[in-house]
Design a protein around this nucleic acid. Structure first.
Lengths: 140, 140
DNA sequence: CGTATTTTGGTACTAAAGTATGAGGACATA
DNA sequence: TATGTCCTCATACTTTAGTACCAAAATACG
């Protein structure tokens, strides 16, 4: 919450600086207006990237303790978002039916996801899948 | 790769547009220069957020410190040695048959141990048992 | 030695998990 | 528009897992 306030504060601050620059450029003909505007653009994009990066980190990578999730590995294995959701619920000990209820989809679909998951993780049972996933640091 | 090119293209395009706007504003006094610059700023930040959100991060994997086993808890739950062995093998992803082979006892016996384990841990499935056992720090 | 606990094993059954296959819809991209 | 990927769901089947109940050895202990 406090971070959110800080971020929006940064955005407003950046806007204010840009507005000031637009005036300052009139009194500093020695410096090209184009240069200043370009500089402002770079700063704003950098700010945006910073904000975007943090937003992504907060929403996708939820971790407790010192263990972090290896997002690269997930891509390497070709695991989809839905598959990751299912994998996480499996690791928490839920049955296929329970997982279906939590995700509002049928048990059949869960079984499909689970089977695909096993192929991609190269395992044969859900308990193995959890062990393997933790080894690879793709779940907490 | 193609996406990367597209993104950098977008950045350059945005910069060009901004430069053009800085000129256009001189010929369009009806529209406030501040407004145009503000609009540009918003667009650039949005672009930055989009770009930042798509940058893949190689997250650092930090190793967890020494995990302590709570021997007291094991006693409290009344878990026998054999049950602990079975529990550990379950957590490694082995099937009942495989566990039986490793401990040189029949699958029937494993099932008995597993069922007793479930009662003592107050769970209904082996995946739950693993989750619970780790919560209680009775397995690594 | 007698008693309690653990470990072992079996049978019979139900429930859940997992496999194989096919297929339609959603959505982004070439 | 065509293509490919993901998500969805279903049917039919096989395999594990799990429950209930029982019982015989092995082991620990006062």
């Amino acid at each position: 919450m406090l971070k959110t306030v800080l971020r929006f504060g940064l955005i407003i601050l950046a806007l204010l600086i840009l507005f000031q620059l637009s005036n300052a450029s009139l009194f500093l003909p020695a410096i090209s207006a184009d240069f200043i505007i370009g500089l402002g653009a770079v700063i704003l994009i950098a700010l945006g990237i910073y904000l975007g990066g943090n937003i992504k980190k907060d929403t996708i990578i939820e971790v407790e303790g010192p263990i972090e999730i290896n997002a690269t590995k997930i891509e390497e294995l070709g695991l989809s978002e839905r598959e990751m959701e299912v994998l996480q619920l499996i690791s928490k000990g839920y049955s296929n039916v329970e997982i279906g209820e939590k995700l509002f989809i049928s048990e059949s679909t869960i079984k499909t996801h689970v089977s695909n998951l096993f192929v991609k993780l190269d395992v044969k049972r859900r308990t193995q899948a959890v062990t393997r996933a933790k080894e690879l640091h793709i779940i907490a």
